[in-house]
Amino acid sequence: MNKNKNVIKLFDRMQNIDRRYIYIVVALSIIIPLLIPFNSRTYVTKPTEDIYKKIDSFAGDETKAILMSFTHDASTMPELFPMEVSVLRHCFERNIKVFTICWLPAAAPLVDYALNTAKEDFDVQSGVDYCNFGYKPYVLRLPIMLGMGDDISKAVETDSQGRKVENLEIMKNIKNYDDMNLVVDFAGSSSAITWITYARARFGANIAAGVTAVMVADNYPYLQTGQLMGIFRGLKGAAEYEKLVDVFAAYESEDYPNGRPFSKEIIKETRVPITGDTVPYKYKKARIGMNAQSIAHIMMIFFILLGNIGYFITRKKEL
């Protein structure tokens, strides 16, 4: 009897638990998996896969390029940065021309950081294999977005190093959205929608978004209608892309010296261990982060269930 009372008392207390206890549990369930990585499965979902396939279809094509638009600052970096690095890595592995542009002064160092992180392992040259258009003021976003529909080198004029864009070797065969056919916008908001209304509706560019998990739901309607051809769903999306790059783009064999084509069946079967040194840390950051996220999610579910059990027990007592 007494024991039962104690249990009820405990659940009673749980009902009005000081939120700081929850904070502590959340903190621990995030920190520990980050410090001690373990292998877990990464299931690749369609929205990420679609982006991968689209980018991969430009592999080795001199006449195609992608644009990465950075519309975020450092605050959302943990989620977005691994996406950016893996997309860049994909491009460098598979010889895909890539442009970067950013709209906030705070994003300029992030673009550099992402480019520097990814290019270290590759023999790529600015102005030839990739080109950073650099920071362009947000007020110019619309004019540049529209201008690129006609002529990129006129709309952007100079790159981050102040070079004339039209003189760069990478611009050979790249004129407007017909060639720079995919724009991936990385943001902690729904800023990809502006790309949809202008770059897609008017010029037929393909638009994809890399967003933080909280903003995914906001972009969903556009994904369903196909206006967004794909989306990175927060850290999970980044982890999926990391795996895709590991399994296909970074794959090397005699038949496929520069990565192999995408296959849904192969990705289903393949596991990539993230413990050990096979994959450099910078390319598995999101997957390690996902471990933490998974544990935190499970903790949350546990808490919610606990809270509900407590709720039922206390309600029963009241009745």
Partner: peptide, 16 residues
């Protein structure tokens, strides 16, 4: 946000 979402979820999700 992570902490706040956790505590908000804990409070909000009750089968009332």
């Amino acid at each position: 946000l992570a902490f706040y979402i956790a505590s908000a979820a804990y409070k909000a999700f009750r089968a009332r």
